[in-house]
Design a protein around this nucleic acid. Structure first.
Lengths: 229, 229
DNA sequence: CCTTTTCTTAAACGGTCGTTTGAATAATAA
DNA sequence: TTATTATTCAAACGACCGTTTAAGAAAAGG
């Protein structure tokens, strides 16, 4: 296992690497991690299995790198939006809806590629959280720990009277709602007998923000009412 | 492939069948569908692979039967609670919170077994929706189509002014929230640095009901406000 | 009892998997 | 150019997969 640790990269090698990466993204997205073989990825990338192992070391390495490659820009955009909102509010606590906008909008942007809405990618992200593969947990911790800490700080500022425990629970629900909605997005069409469309990603994100914000606020209020009774 | 179509079942055969079923549930629950082999299931059940194939025909057949065996009673309880609530309300439309209680409480009951909370099973249900295996979609349609139709009828009655499309979207979100929360339940503990507990399933369900109800209502109100503007 | 059906078992089948090897090719440096 | 390194490739390795076969054990029916 001799992963290419970015020494001197031949132009052609970079091309190959990217071809493997995007082939992997397409295949893992539509068929899951266990349902795709390295041979299929290599064939779709126009190369062979040894090349994929040369660049990524293993199947796990390929999956991790693919997720990182896609998720890191989304998280950067989330932090950018949050910082922008903070700057715009002039030091005052942010409303929950603003916070959740910063959390959810970048997902929609990422899923609205140049070739039309890529709602399959949203499935992949949602699924990557429910797959039992233990190596994914480390990736998620590395990719999301800092992000969730920062968002928790903002929620605390906007709800100074709320109990820490309740904030954790409800941010957890917001994230779970987001992941569940992303992962099960496709099911909406047959479920609604075609009445609802899964192609309009932006509409879903907008609805999701309202839903998550309403759920969060209702739950926090409920906890407050219980404490006061 | 000669599935046992319930002709005459020897007592010992029933025992074997149940041992395979519960071994499968434990293993698939902790390691996912693709991560478990028929040999492992058979070994844990104290028998061999051919026996498992004799009783369930194939790995898919075993998974389907395991899911059906667990989910069917939950759905029956959901319908019972809904009918009970309707009888209690005397023909008047049900409040969303009551409807979602009927939808969510039975999950908590199922996950609170005699041997302590079985939060792993909730993961399995949540995961079964995000696994890309196509054969699962048929199972889900068969297991959940009638149920969701009935719950939609009740939501329509409680929101006669709402657009059909909005009701579908928001019931979809409620289900997505439930599945996402179930599937990612375990992550709450490390995420909250141990502050929140994942052992108290009932607490989670109660919080989930409030969250889902709040999100649903907020989103419906938002749609109404948009239509009126 | 004997016959027939139901169930269990060890062993094998054909195939595919992730990974590795070693030689050939392309790029870079001298 | 030549020496060195970086990359690609066909082929193979060893392991494990889901499934089937065929024969025997257990149970049921007569």
């Amino acid at each position: 296992m001799m992963v290419k640790e970015s020494n001197k990269a031949t132009p052609r090698a970079i091309v190959t690497r990217n071809r493997i990466l995007s082939a992997a993204e397409h295949l893992f997205t539509t068929r899951g991690f266990a349902g795709v073989t390295m041979r299929e990825v290599a064939r779709r990338a126009g190369t062979n299995v040894a090349s994929a192992h040369y660049h990524f070391g293993s199947k796990e390495g390929l999956i991790i790198e693919m997720l990182r490659h896609r998720i890191a820009p989304i998280n950067a955009e989330r932090l950018r939006l949050l910082k922008e909102a903070k700057h715009h509010s002039g030091g005052k606590p942010l409303k929950p809806l603003i916070i959740f906008k910063a959390l959810l909008l970048p997902i929609g942007q990422a899923a609205t590629g140049s070739t039309g809405p890529d709602s399959r990618f949203m499935q992949l992200v949602g699924r990557s959280f429910t797959e039992p593969a233990s190596f994914l947990e480390k990736v998620h911790r590395r990719l999301f720990r800092e992000l969730s800490d920062i968002f928790m700080v903002e929620l605390r500022r906007s709800h100074p009277a709320a109990r820490e425990e309740d904030l954790f629970w409800n941010l957890h629900f917001v994230v779970a709602t987001m992941l569940g909605a992303l992962a099960n997005h496709r099911r909406l069409v047959p479920f609604s007998s075609g009445l609802c469309n899964d192609q309009n990603v932006d509409e879903m994100i907008q609805r999701l923000i309202v839903f998550a914000g309403g759920g969060f606020t209702a739950s926090i209020e409920n906890a407050k009412a219980k404490a006061n009774q």
